[in-house]
Design a protein around this nucleic acid. Structure first.
Length: 426
RNA sequence: GUGGGUGUAGCUCAGCCGGCAGAGCACCUGACUGUGGCUCAGGGGGCCGUGGGUUCAAAUCCCAUCACCCACCCCA
C-alpha cells in the first residue's frame, strides 16, 4: 500500500514554491519597513499555554489541537496559532525590560485537526505579527496598515477589511453587554438555530455573528454591543474612535462590521478580519486584534498588545482567484549534452566552474542517450544553452554551444567556455 | 463532529441499463549516421480506491470501509 500524506497535510511542490518565496520575500521587506523583527518559536508548546491564552472553552482548544503526552507525561500540543507562543517568549525572555515596544513577526506552520476543505488544512502556514508592550490605539492603526500593505505587496487587491471593537472586561463594557444579552436571549431561545442554542450557556456572544437570518433578527432586537462600548466608563469607546480616525488618515479603507466577533478569548477592543473574493466558504485571509491582558495572563507585566495573522494558503488561493499567478519566468542556464564517454571528465570540470560562477547547470549522466532526447530534455527544462561534447569536439579541444532561443550554434575552445557562458548569463 | 459529491493510465476524464480497459494531454522511440519546439507514425504504462456480496460473467448492480472534494461548523 502506498503511503500518502496524512489527512489535511499538503506538499508544497517545486512549481508552487517560487510563488511562496515571492510572497515571503515581499512580506519580509514590508515587515522590516515597519520595524518588525523575526522570531522563531518552537512548533511544540505546553498544552497549558494554549488553554490559558486561547481559552479552554474555545473550539480550537477543546477539540482542534494535536495534543499528546511526552515520555515524562507532560501534555504538549502543536501550536494552533502564533500569538500565544510569541507572548510566551516575550515573557520568558523579559522583552519588556528592553523598554521599547516589541515588534515581532513569525512565519511558519500551525496545526488544527479540523475537517479539511477548500482553504482549510490541518497544517497551514501563517505570517503573524505582534506588537507587544503598548495599549495605544495608534499601535492598532499601525498593525492594520501593515496588514493592508502586506496584502497589497503580495499582489492581492480585491479584499475587504472588516473592523469592529469587542470591548473589554470592564463592568460597564463588554461584561455588562454579555449579562444583558444573555438575559435577553433567554426569552428568545426557541427562535434561535440549534447551533446557537448549543452555544447559549457557555459562549453566548458568539451568537452575535451567526449568519442565519432567524438568529440575526433576534440579535438585532437585543442590546447593542457597539452602544455599550461607546458609552462604557472605560476608554474602549474613545479607543475605537481613534483607531478609525487613524486608519482614515493612513488611507486604509475599512468597513465597520458590528457583528464581527473573534473566536479566541484573548481579544479585547479592536478586532478585524480581511475577507477576499473568490475563495468559497473559507474566505478570511487574515485576521487579528488587540489582546490587552494576555501577557499578564501568561505571567508577564501588565502591558497591552495587538497582532494579526495572514493565512498563506488562503492568500495564495486569493492571488490565484485574482489571476495574479505570474507566468513562470524563462529560466536561464546551461545543459551539458554528452555524446559518448570521452567528454565526461572535461564536462565535470567546467560544470563545476560554471556553477561557481552562478550559472545553473544540468548535466546528462547517461552518455548513451541520443542527442535528440538530451536536447528535448534541455528544452523541457527551459534552459537557454546546450553545450555539446563528443568525440569530434574532444579531438580538437572545443565544444559546440547551441543557443536554444536563437537557434544558433558555434564552436568554442574549451578554455573559453566558462568565461563565455558566465558572461552570457549576466 | 454532521451532510452531499467523487474515486478508472503520471494528469484531466469517458465507459456505469453487467460481456476482452478507453480518449486527450504527458512520457519513450522512430521519420538519411550527432541537433529541441511543429507535424506524422509507433510504443510503454491500469489490483477500475479497498474488502465483501449477487451473477456463468462486475469498472459497471448491492453492502461496508477508506481517501479526496464541497458545504455545515470553525477559523487564518
Amino acid at each position: 500500500m502506498e503511503i500518502k500524506t496524512v489527512r489535511g497535510m499538503k506538499d508544497i511542490l517545486p512549481g508552487e514554491v517560487a510563488r511562496w518565496e515571492r510572497v515571503e520575500q515581499s512580506a519580509r521587506s514590508t515587515l522590516r519597513a515597519y520595524g518588525f523583527e523575526e522570531i522563531r518559536t518552537p512548533v511544540l508548546e505546553a498544552t497549558g499555554l494554549f488553554e490559558r491564552a486561547i481559552g479552554q472553552a474555545t473550539d480550537i482548544v477543546s477539540k482542534e489541537m494535536y495534543t499528546f503526552n511526552e515520555r515524562g507525561g507532560a501534555s504538549v500540543s502543536l501550536r494552533p496559532e502564533a500569538t500565544a507562543s510569541v507572548c510566551r517568549a516575550y515573557v520568558e525572555h523579559h522583552m519588556n525590560s528592553e523598554g521599547a515596544l516589541a515588534k515581532l513577526y513569525l512565519i511558519g506552520p500551525m496545526f488544527r485537526t479540523e475537517r479539511p476543505q477548500a482553504g482549510r488544512q490541518r497544517q497551514f502556514h501563517q505570517i503573524s505579527a505582534e506588537a507587544i508592550g503598548c495599549a495605544h490605539p495608534l499601535a492598532d492603526v499601525e498593525m492594520i496598515t501593515l496588514l493592508s500593505d502586506l496584502l497589497i505587496g503580495a499582489g492581492a487587491d480585491r479584499f475587504t477589511l472588516l473592523l469592529n471593537s469587542v470591548g473589554c472586561g470592564h463592568e460597564t463594557c463588554r461584561a455588562r453587554f454579555v449579562t444583558l444579552f444573555t438575559q435577553y436571549l433567554k426569552a428568545h431561545l426557541p427562535s434561535l438555530c440549534p447551533e446557537c442554542r448549543g452555544r447559549y450557556p457557555k459562549r453566548v456572544w458568539r451568537i452575535l455573528d451567526c449568519k442565519k437570518e432567524g438568529c440575526r433578527k433576534v440579535t438585532r432586537g437585543g442590546p447593542s454591543l457597539a452602544e455599550h462600548i461607546r458609552t462604557a466608563a472605560c476608554d474602549c469607546g474613545r479607543h475605537f474612535e481613534t483607531v478609525q480616525k487613524g486608519l482614515k488618515a493612513s488611507g486604509v479603507a475599512f468597513q465597520i462590521e458590528p457583528c464581527l466577533v473573534r473566536g479566541l478569548d484573548y481579544y479585547t477592543k479592536t478586532a478585524f478580519e480581511v475577507v477576499a473574493q473568490g475563495l468559497g466558504a473559507q474566505d478570511a485571509v487574515a485576521a487579528g486584534g488587540r489582546y490587552d491582558g494576555l501577557v499578564e495572563l501568561l505571567g508577564g507585566p501588565q502591558v497591552g498588545g495587538v497582532g494579526m495573522a495572514i493565512g498563506l494558503e488562503r492568500l495564495m488561493l486569493a492571488l490565484e482567484a485574482g489571476g495574479k499567478n505570474a507566468a513562470e519566468e524563462a529560466k536561464g542556464g546551461v545543459y551539458v549534452a554528452l555524446l559518448g564517454e570521452s567528454g565526461v571528465e572535461s564536462a565535470l570540470h567546467f560544470v563545476r566552474k560554471l556553477r561557481e560562477g552562478g550559472v545553473p547547470c544540468h548535466m546528462a549522466f547517461e552518455t548513451s542517450r541520443s542527442l535528440k532526447s538530451q536536447l528535448r530534455e534541455a528544452d523541457r527544462l527551459k534552459l537557454r544553452s546546450v553545450v555539446m561534447l563528443g568525440e569530434r569536439e574532444m579531438e580538437r579541444q572545443v565544444v559546440t554551444v547551441k543557443d536554444l532561443v536563437a537557434r544558433e550554434q558555434k564552436e568554442l575552445p574549451i578554455r573559453e567556455l566558462v568565461a563565455y557562458l558566465t558572461r552570457a548569463v549576466q
